[in-house]
Write a protein that binds this DNA or RNA. Structure first.
Lengths: 153, 153
DNA sequence: GGAAAAGGTTGCATTAAGAAACCAAATCAA
DNA sequence: TTGATTTGGTTTCTTAATGCAACCTTTTCC
């Protein structure tokens, strides 16, 4: 019984989860955003088993989220760096962080601030084209013909 | 060897992933945002095994993301509805959707539009207090003493 | 040159996931 | 009212994933 694939589910969210939806991937990405580049530093920073880390890093590389760069003089010192695609997950990571802080309190040792001002960030929100904040009740899911689907709260 | 717990990792992202970080939870939540409330409808809509759906729903209920409401006359007709905490994951779901669409193309049968205007939504972004858009390079991770940590891209 | 570090791989035990069968209560059709 | 079907599960079995520890090779440090 191989694990269910999500990329043929006709859903972009499922497709995203297929790439970064397991327990560790987003934490590896968050660690990379924090500055970590070396295998051992990921291992120590996350407390992840080496074989799992191997698997996650190579999967992230395969999916174009990270790259493996050879930085050794003679061959076997590597760095794992975020690609543009990986860095673009910043929104997701921050949204998850803020959600957790709103509902579970701040469990984090560290804080995220604007580099130039030192001030905390604004809350990540969903907006319409005019910049108005939208909740799930303010949107419609429409099919390819523009027909709206039922929606709930 | 029980799966690693993330809620004692000193990280809000890890704490969030501990609640909704497995393969199915966010899809169940997205399905609920789409209007699904009944057990069978989740099952048909997602193609998930019943025992896994049972487990995920009850875990989401335990974590306060959904509630189980008895809607039957005599006892065993249930609806699973999002709580405020669950609805608040809208930002995360939309951010994931949009990321996937930006990098993998739109794999989705349906589209998300502003209910009042019918227009597509704006891209979810991270902003500072002044409303300026920030990337991961524009932020600093600081510890509890305000000391900045190294950061990369 | 010897020791340690980096980046893995392998083997084993435990847990989770998926499919299918089964089941009891409630509802629906006749 | 009876019988079938739906709903919301639970159980069993097989396969896959996770975690830990040991090991291994190349490279760097002293």
């Amino acid at each position: 019984m191989t694990r269910k694939r999500f990329d043929d589910l006709g859903c972009s969210v499922a497709c995203a989860l297929n790439e970064v939806g397991d327990w560790w991937s987003l934490l590896v990405i968050k660690q990379a955003m924090l500055g970590t580049r070396r295998f051992v530093d990921f291992q120590n920073g996350l407390g992840i088993a080496k074989n799992i880390l191997c698997d996650r890093l190579s999967r992230l590389v395969d999916n174009g989220v990270m790259t493996r760069v050879n930085v050794g003089e003679h061959g076997t010192r590597y760095e794992y760096r975020l690609t543009d695609k990986g860095r673009d997950l910043f929104t997701v990571v921050v949204a998850l962080r803020q959600w957790s802080e709103r509902w579970n309190g701040n469990k984090d040792d560290m804080q995220l601030v604007d580099r130039s001002s030192g001030e905390p960030l604004a809350q990540v929100v969903v907006q319409n084209a005019d910049g108005e904040v939208l909740t799930v009740r303010d949107v419609l899911f429409v099919d390819e013909n523009g027909q709206p689907l039922e929606q709930a709260g």
